[in-house]
Design a protein around this nucleic acid. Structure first.
Lengths: 411, 411
DNA sequence: GGCATAAGTTCAACGACAGAACAAATCAGT
DNA sequence: ACTGATTTGTTCTGTCGTTGAACTTATGCC
């Protein structure tokens, strides 16, 4: 009925290490710096015995995942506690984004800080996929070398790709914007000498952008005290196409194969304009970059042109944005009705256009989301910038470390 | 970043008990009766030591969750194995469905067999919610007495309700078809003497119908060998309104509060007919029972009238069904695009109409689901009948037992 | 009747957490 | 400055649960 895996004794330890690590990560990220938790505080928060926590923390300290910060602010009587926080000294992760025309790679340490980064503004993708992937591997290799020179141990890498990515098999099944189909990305990358021995993963760029949003340090006391634990939202990423990433209960929603979140091809109006996918009235045909610019009379322009046109209150631009916002609202209402997420977040090229997109979007959500009369659906603007997908790719690997730290402790 | 709970040693045992139980359930349900697994087989399948499995099985045997079946078919040399299967002798669960006009209660034993059932064809819901709920509690009390007279230990009960159910708080927040709002169902039921001491839960009827579908014994070698493990589908339940339940990776998708799956209010055409919810062009305005009958020229009739009209090829009925099927397809395409489920299942009053609904539905899915060109989206007809929601309600409790059997073993 | 084979049981060992006793480091008050 | 209260962190013993191997049991085959 349900996939219940057996557990061995070492899984216990693994899980409790992860619980300690998650709690430290949450506390350090949630409030300001000074709130580094102590062993005793962790024991109280988790319910574990103080001795057990001490043992777990020691293992994480020698493994270089945690570090002690001398004395946190003195409070009352009693022996002062040693503060604990994630250590950015050892563990790091590689993220690579391969977009329609650009490529970026970065290495983030366990605290999430970017320690190395390089962008290639315009990647030559006239060659076959293998060649383009090799170019991205070269880029990754340079960033890796930079990080390793800083003493970082890069434990894995993830590639953010546009299109339907089969996360299990590690293949890119369909990428209209790249013109690729059935490319075995993981195998091709694994053969590249610059990435030798590095565990790799691939995922959809929108799903990873959503993960980046979840990892973003911002929003201090924005929500419930638990900060980003249990956050749930749909992040819309409008680049060439429109995608979305769903986070439910603080975890990315993957779907059966990793093909979830295809918001761009949700139908807004079945009798609407033709879409590149073959159907009609898809969201992309209203709010996709190309369609949006064409409707604003700016065909061939860029997102910046549209923003400037809207700023000087150009009527065609305002009308196009209003229509696009309404279309986004209709599609996102479907997503909220189906998924019951807390909020909608505008990311990618939608973020700078939010002042014009959000009002009609919000209006449609209020009308079309059944639960809106009980609980409003807030529309937020993404806190992450243009690098969301790369940041998320690295975060994917880091999340893996936080979830299963044990393998890093024995070595 | 993520809700990682600490684990104690007893959780290890709990989980391994659940693993054994799930494997037995899966084997007994998946193939025919004769494939009852042995202790040794379970050890091999789980990877646990034979001694450990023996200990776990013994605990489940004395707890009455498993039973031995004398000798499974002889195979080769060696000591013959004792077959194991779920026992229907002790543990059972209560399910109650409270629909717009009817109520049903049943008790299922751990094997899923219905051991007691009673339906009230027409419930008087002119009174306040507390009174209607009390009537359902009386109904439940009679079924409970029947089950207890058979020696069953009913370990919990679940109520299937139409509308937005807050599963965490145990309240029905909004039920247009009942005319209820913010009813604290769990508290009201808990006060009723007939249910004294019984742990109760509430959930949305469509979500529970999907669970029933997942639990349904049918489909022998329909899919992958793992039978229903990891199944993923959207089940459409068309009764008065249209709802849906989502199963992803063999588990129901709940959403943040339990309000997921509101397919009925996904927009099919923003310029479409007005819906009772206040918006326009919702799926319910096309394929809801009332709208469907009205379009077929059968206003005031029932689902059977429509089926008969379709059978005699009444043009208005056929046209209405074709439109409804296409609308269902548009809305379900959004669901598949967003969730990446394997299949679509027609249930409730859609099931008998499937011969007419499925073709246009399938057509729209093929057009509008982005992944359809890679992997088709099969449309199936639900194997469960009109009792899907009650069956699912009981299954919810039983699933809880399978997931956490330990509490039943000490007593 | 004896041997091979596989299932099930028993038992010592090990890994991990729990709880209590203990040592360490600070503050408050005299 | 000294003493006691207080809280943190460590150490140690006990318990729980799994592991792996040795052992017993039951059957088929020769």
């Amino acid at each position: 009925m349900a996939p219940v895996e057996r557990a061995r004794q070492s899984d216990l330890r693994e899980r409790n290490l992860a619980a300690v690590l998650a709690l430290v990560a949450d506390r350090t990220a949630g409030a300001g710096a000074a709130s580094a938790p102590s062993r005793a505080g962790l024991a109280a928060a988790t319910g574990m015995a103080r001795g057990t926590v001490s043992a777990l923390v020691d293992a994480l300290l020698v493994g270089g995942l945690l570090e002690e910060v001398p004395p946190p602010p003195r409070t009352g009587a009693g022996r002062p506690a040693h503060g604990l926080r994630l250590s950015g000294r050892r563990v790091a992760a590689l993220g690579v984004e391969l977009g329609a025309s650009h490529a970026v790679a970065c290495v983030r340490d366990l605290t999430g800080a970017v320690r190395a980064r390089e962008a290639v503004p315009s990647i030559d993708r006239t060659g076959p996929p293998a060649q383009v992937l090799a170019a991205s591997a070269e880029l990754a290799g340079r960033v890796l070398a930079d990080a390793r020179a800083q003493g970082l141990d890069v434990v894995g890498g993830a590639w953010a790709l546009p299109g339907l990515v089969d996360t299990g098999a590690g293949t890119l099944r369909l990428a209209p914007n790249l013109g690729w189909r059935d490319v075995d990305v993981l195998t091709l990358l694994g053969e590249h000498p610059a990435l030798h021995g590095l565990p790799l993963a691939v995922d959809n760029e929108a799903a990873l952008a959503a993960l980046a949003e979840l990892w973003h340090p911002g929003e201090p006391a924005d929500e419930a005290p638990g900060s980003r634990r249990g956050a749930s939202f749909v992040l819309v990423t409008g680049e060439v196409g429109i995608g979305s990433g769903v986070v439910l209960g603080g975890r990315p929603l993957r779907g059966e194969r990793g093909w979830s979140g295809e918001l761009g091809h949700v139908t807004v109006d079945p009798a609407g304009p033709r879409c590149g996918c073959g159907a009609s009235g898809c969201l992309e045909a209203y709010a996709g970059q190309e369609a949006l610019l064409a409707r604003a009379g700016l065909a061939g322009g860029g997102a910046d042109d549209l923003r400037r046109a809207a700023e000087r209150e150009d009527p065609a631009a305002l009308a196009a944005l209003d229509d696009a916002g309404a279309a986004l609202g209709t599609a996102l209402a479907a997503a909220v009705n189906l998924l019951d997420v807390d909020a909608v977040v505008l990311g990618g090229s939608c973020a700078p256009l939010a002042p014009w997109l959000a009002p009609p979007l919000q209006r449609e959500l209020e009308r079309r989301v059944l639960r809106a009369r009980l609980l409003e659906v807030p529309v937020r603007v993404s806190a992450t910038g243009a690098d969301a997908a790369v940041m998320g790719a690295a975060a994917l690997v880091l999340q893996g470390v936080l979830d299963a730290p044990a393998p890093l402790l024995s070595a």
